[in-house]
Design a protein around this nucleic acid. Structure first.
Lengths: 132, 132
DNA sequence: CACTTTTTTAGAACCATTATAAAGTACATT
DNA sequence: AATGTACTTTATAATGGTTCTAAAAAAGTG
């Protein structure tokens, strides 16, 4: 299994549940956006298997801490995650309530001219809201 | 009262509660960021008066719809609003969990090169996460 | 004033997320 | 393989921000 090492290297024991979540998240051609609920459903359908919600929350948060998924900053009742961990941005379609990737190369270079004393920039995220 | 007209013009009856919320939100030198709870506390302290939480929610959402306050897109358990409705951005200090305004002039021009068919851009918001 | 519509309100309901604590699993050591 | 320990999973309860409800109050209209 290709994910066993990945998990071990990050100090996470390769449990059955974590490996299955890896499969669902990373064994895909394309990256995607998801909420915890989306993921839970996907696991049930795709693996014909149920993993406790608490475990899914724990695992996704562990993966986020390790940088395997990213949280998308957006106001919504649910938290959105992204399996695309490259430096990129998002469109948010207000009508269809849908996120669309916006690659870094599709956004001109962003220069932050203001500096905050003693702080360093960790990330720059752009959200472009669109509508009909 | 200077807010009576403002409210009437937007089809909102100028009730005592709405006028008081206007005072707290807009009778200040500087703009500020707030959560509903922040605002509720501020009303109690500043006006020595209690307005029902439901009313505060209703009013802030009504004001948002009218464009008098803006929601700040950020992942947090509470929704953040901004009385600064100018086109601008934010730093988010991860250590102190605090928002700091980032004026448009402090960010280089942003060009979105990708277009989505039949959709127009409503807003472009940048969130710069900073840490120690 | 009489009447209609909007607004406020306290409290209940909702629901995403987090906490709990008991049972299960991984793994190093022997 | 057996043992011990730390980590993980799980069902369920708890939490807490937000929304709903329906009755009372206030605003606007003629």
């Amino acid at each position: 299994m290709k994910y066993i090492e990945k998990l071990r290297n990050s100090g996470l024991r390769p449990t059955k549940q974590r490996l299955q979540i890896c499969e669902v998240l990373f064994d895909t051609e394309k990256t995607f956006h998801f909420t915890i609920n989306d993921l839970a459903k996907k696991i049930e359908n795709q693996l014909n298997n149920k993993i406790s919600l608490a475990t899914i929350y724990n695992t996704v948060h562990a993966f986020e801490k390790k940088g395997y998924v990213k949280q998308i900053p957006i106001n919504s009742s649910q938290t959105y995650f992204d399996t695309n961990i490259s430096d990129h941005h998002h469109f948010y379609d207000l009508n269809e309530r849908r996120l669309i990737d916006l690659e870094n190369s599709d956004v001109g270079p962003i220069k932050i001219l203001k500096k905050i004393n003693g702080k360093k920039v960790k990330s720059i995220e752009v959200l472009v809201k669109i509508e009909d």
